[in-house]
């Protein structure tokens, strides 16, 4: 469970986050929906304690990130944007490395890595160096890294960017799988289709503020629109920076 309360953050002269509050529950997929520049990535980075909020705080399973960063991060998995792969390592080494950093011992990390590699059907590329990987292969490697240690909370920053249909499916199935296992999944996106298809709850963000919170159906009903896209445009008051 991720709880964000009253976070404000200024980056340079821009008020990137403005008194932002929301929560993401376990066993649910929560979508952070907003146009480009709405503050989605800033928000996620703040949850990870990489950025320090000017005011407000973020809690992971009740642990304050600012006060106990290591303990809070142990309960998180991150699928970042950009991926941050080490091109000279193989996926197996890469995933195992981060599994150990997340606190697993050597043999557990090895087992968990093998399991996640076969789950994502990556066995054919598992021992090739990441250099030269396709976008789909990179995505899978980053995804495996995020879930290998079975964190209660998984955060994905724009997970579907640049993916083909097959890769998007792998991702979608995996997120649903995680949800059914009771994980808390929070992802940011500006792609309507994705959010409508996957999310139990949508947090619509614009200019660093929460514009609306609810399930896709609720948002449609509230705005009296048929599609989430129309609802979204009405909620944020512009169609700038949206992908259909």
């Amino acid at each position: 469970m991720i709880n964000v309360s009253n976070i404000s953050k200024k980056i340079g002269k821009v008020q990137a986050l403005d008194d932002l509050s929301f929560s993401a529950e376990d066993g649910m997929i929560t979508g952070l929906l907003g146009p480009n520049g709405a503050g989605k990535t800033t928000c996620l980075r703040t949850i990870f304690g990489l950025l320090k909020p000017d005011s407000g705080n973020a809690e992971i399973d009740g642990i304050d990130v600012a006060k106990h960063p290591v303990a809070a991060k142990a309960k998180l998995g991150l699928f970042p944007d950009p991926f941050g792969l080490y091109e000279r390592l193989t996926p197996r080494e890469y995933i195992q490395y981060f599994a150990k950093l997340s606190g697993m011992n050597s043999s557990d990390a090895k087992q968990a890595t093998a399991a996640v590699l076969s789950k994502l059907r990556m066995d054919d590329i598992a021992d090739r160096r990441c250099k030269g990987f396709s976008q789909g292969q990179r995505m899978k490697t980053a995804l495996a890294q995020a879930i290998v240690h079975q964190p209660t909370n998984i955060i994905l920053d724009e997970p579907t960017r640049g993916l083909d249909v097959m890769s998007t499916r792998v991702l979608r199935d995996l997120l649903l799988d995680l949800k059914h296992q009771g994980h808390c999944v929070l992802f940011s996106s500006h792609v309507m289709q994705e959010v409508a298809a996957l999310c139990d709850r949508v947090i619509v963000m614009a200019n660093g503020k929460v514009a609306a919170i609810g399930s896709p159906q609720e948002l449609c009903q509230r705005t009296g629109q048929d599609s989430l896209e129309e609802a979204f445009i009405q909620l944020i008051g512009t169609d700038e920076g949206i992908a259909a």
Binding site: F48, L78, G84, L85, Y86, L101, G103
Partner: peptide, 14 residues
């Protein structure tokens, strides 16, 4: 530059 520093710091290491 490879964007892995942010990822590294997102893990429970000091």
């Amino acid at each position: 530059e490879r964007n892995s520093l942010g990822l590294l710091l997102s893990h429970p290491v000091t």
